[in-house]
């Protein structure tokens, strides 16, 4: 049942999830929860499609998708860090905005063919290795150099970090921008490197799954590839089980990624596994510096 074909499909389906979750790990490590990731992903998908159809250049498509995501990330950073808006509300609002812009800019492009796309084919092993390398690099930056110490310090204890001379607001905004950029890039890759078509609503739901991957990976870039592969595998399996000889109902199968996410979350939270992952202590908590001590 587990054929090589299935594994390759799992890698292909898991790649955009991995890219998005790696960015969000950085954002959340600095203490910002960005639920806008869902809208960023969807927008990235639309932007990459439109850009690539117009320019015939996939690199340009990916870059523009990243920039679009970065802009939304920056907005989330300003609203939730500088203006201390509730992170959940700001994130959801951005998701809605992302959906809206995606459907507006993509409307005239529905049904158009992609002139070019990223073809992986039998180079999947290279894709896998570079994914692992990037995950390792991001882990290294987060845990082995000063940059990572700065990011983690504002996510764990922003008040002490401020006392040690870290610019909490700037750090949080920049990591949110970075997370947004990778989120947009992920959406772009989803269209250009995986499904190769676009209609309104393409990519919806992927951002939520990436958010779940961040949690079960314990905010560790090294674990993200494993869970991305698992979720990619579920998607690949759905495709397989719709075909003969299985012929499962596509709608019921369509619920499985979400059911899996829910189950994995519960398994992690309700069992002793919970001890092994500690969220950044200041995740979701705005940073205050007022001229008064309580």
């Amino acid at each position: 049942m587990i054929s090589l074909d299935l594994i390759i499909r799992a890698i292909l389906a898991g790649t955009p999830l991995l890219i998005a979750s790696l960015g969000e790990i950085y954002t959340e490590r600095s203490g910002v929860l960005n639920l806008g990731l869902e809208g960023i992903f969807v927008l990235g998908a639309a932007v990459s499609f439109v850009t690539t159809v117009d320019s015939g250049n996939v690199i340009l498509g990916l870059i523009f998708a990243g920039i679009a995501g970065g802009i939304l990330g920056l907005i989330h950073g300003i609203v939730s860090v500088s203006f201390r808006g509730r992170q959940v509300v700001s994130g959801l609002a951005l998701t809605i905005v992302g959906y809206g812009i995606a459907s507006l800019i993509g409307a005239k492009y529905v049904g158009k063919p992609l002139p070019t796309y990223i073809y992986i084919g039998d180079k999947w092993i290279i894709l896998l290795i570079s994914e692992l390398a990037i995950a390792f690099l991001l882990w290294y930056l987060l845990f082995k150099i000063k940059l990572g110490a700065i990011i983690r310090s504002v996510g764990e204890d922003p008040i002490s970090a401020y006392g040690l001379g870290v610019d909490v607001v700037k750090t949080r905004i920049l990591t949110t921008l970075f997370g947004g950029f990778l989120g947009g890039l992920a959406g772009g890759w989803y269209v250009l490197g995986y499904i190769h078509i676009w209609t309104e609503g393409t990519g919806m739901g992927r951002g939520w799954i990436a958010l779940a991957i961040v949690i079960v990976s314990a905010w560790n870039p090294l674990l993200a590839p494993i869970f991305s592969l698992i979720f990619g595998g579920v998607e690949a399996a759905i495709w397989r089980f719709q075909l003969p000889p299985y012929n499962f109902n596509p709608y019921l199968l369509g619920a499985t990624p979400y059911l899996t996410t829910l189950l994995i979350l519960v398994i992690f939270m309700a069992t002793p596994l919970k001890k092994y992952f500690r969220p950044p202590k200041a995740l979701g908590i705005p940073f205050y510096r007022e001229e008064r001590t309580i």
Partner: peptide
Amino acid sequence: PYGTVNIFTGTLLLTLIS
């Protein structure tokens, strides 16, 4: 497209909390 209304409602929420 109808989805464009989302731009409006989303921006509304963002400006509201700011």
